[in-house]
Each structure stands twice: as structure tokens, then as C-alpha cells.
């Protein structure tokens, strides 16, 4: 296994460099580029990021492991992140989660066998005013109920 940034991403990195007083600041932007490129962060990427940022590979690994949105393993095509924080809980997220679990046959942290869905229970998505809420990949779905949830899942390509 090896990792290399795509030519397109190398171009982005050059632009990013001029935005910060030190290449060290590029850790998170580069981790995001890797995750967008590969769908997750393979261990081989630590060296590539370390070289650009001038951190050690361990520094990159330490940072990557700190941020919960960064993954070391691929997720399903549709990564469902259902909010479990207080306002969503008061508005019924537990029922939604139960519904989702039954419908997809997997628990939080698992991926369906066909690789289509991953469920994750996450902390506050900032949708308290439109609770309960979830994200599928980066897209927000709010003011949910089980009916709405069914429709959303059915309409996914």
C-alpha cells in the first residue's frame, strides 16, 4: 500500500500553503483532503502529510486520532450520522435510531454488508432548532420523523 495526493490535490495544497504562516497549520486541511480523496485516512498518508507540514508522522497520527470525523477505515456509501444530543433526544431521536436500526439491520458503528449504509450516533449537529436531525455524508436532514426518514432513504440513488 502506498499513498499519494492526486495532481488536483497537489495543486490545492500549493494554494493552501500561502494561507498560513507555517506549513504546520496544514495538518487538518491535508487530513481532510486525504479523506475526501480516499474515503478514509490510510496509515500511509501520515508520512505524506508529515513531509508537507514538517510535523513528524506521529504528530499527524496523534492529531488525526483526536478528531472524531476523521476515519481510519472506509464508511458506507451513505454515512448516516444521527444526532444523539439533548435537543434531538427531547424531540425523539431514539425512536428514529431504533427505526433506522430495524430498517437497515445494523447498529451504530456498523456498515451494511453491501457497503451502502453506515450508521453513527454523533453529538450535537447544531440542529437543535430543527430537531431531530441527521446527516447523510455532509447533507443535513432535519425535523425528521420515521415517515420522512423512509422517504429520504428510498430516494437515495
Amino acid at each position: 500500500m502506498s499513498f499519494a495526493f492526486s495532481p488536483e490535490n497537489l495543486g490545492k495544497i500549493e494554494k493552501l500553503r500561502s494561507r498560513y504562516p507555517s506549513p504546520k497549520a496544514l495538518t487538518l486541511p491535508l487530513l481532510w483532503l486525504v479523506q475526501e480523496q480516499e474515503g478514509y485516512i490510510p496509515g500511509e498518508a501520515f508520512d505524506a502529510i508529515a513531509e508537507i507540514t514538517t510535523w513528524s508522522p506521529m504528530d499527524i497520527y496523534k492529531s488525526a486520532s483526536f478528531y472524531t470525523m476523521l476515519r481510519f477505515e472506509p464508511a458506507g456509501k451513505y454515512h448516516i450520522k444521527i444526532c444523539r444530543s439533548l435537543s434531538c433526544t427531547l424531540c425523539g431521536q431514539a425512536m428514529l435510531y431504533r427505526h433506522l436500526r430495524e430498517k437497515l439491520g445494523i447498529k451504530a458503528g456498523e456498515t451494511t454488508a453491501d457497503g451502502r449504509f453506515t450508521i453513527e450516533r454523533v453529538e450535537c449537529l447544531g440542529s437543535c432548532g430543527t430537531a431531530p436531525a441527521m446527516q447523510i455524508n455532509d447533507i443535513y436532514y432535519e425535523e425528521l420523523n420515521t415517515l420522512k426518514l423512509d422517504t429520504i432513504l428510498e430516494n437515495l440513488p
Partner: peptide
């Protein structure tokens, strides 16, 4: 730089790089 604290909160632990 072989060692680092990996993970967060009560999952934090000392580790080497994978492999």
C-alpha cells in the same frame, strides 16, 4: 517521535505508529 497519545477522553492511550 515513536510514541504518542492517541485517541481522546477516556479512550486516550499511548501508542506507536501502526506497524
Amino acid at each position: 517521535n515513536e510514541l504518542g497519545i492517541i485517541g481522546r477522553g477516556d479512550e486516550a492511550h499511548v501508542s506507536t505508529m501502526p506497524g
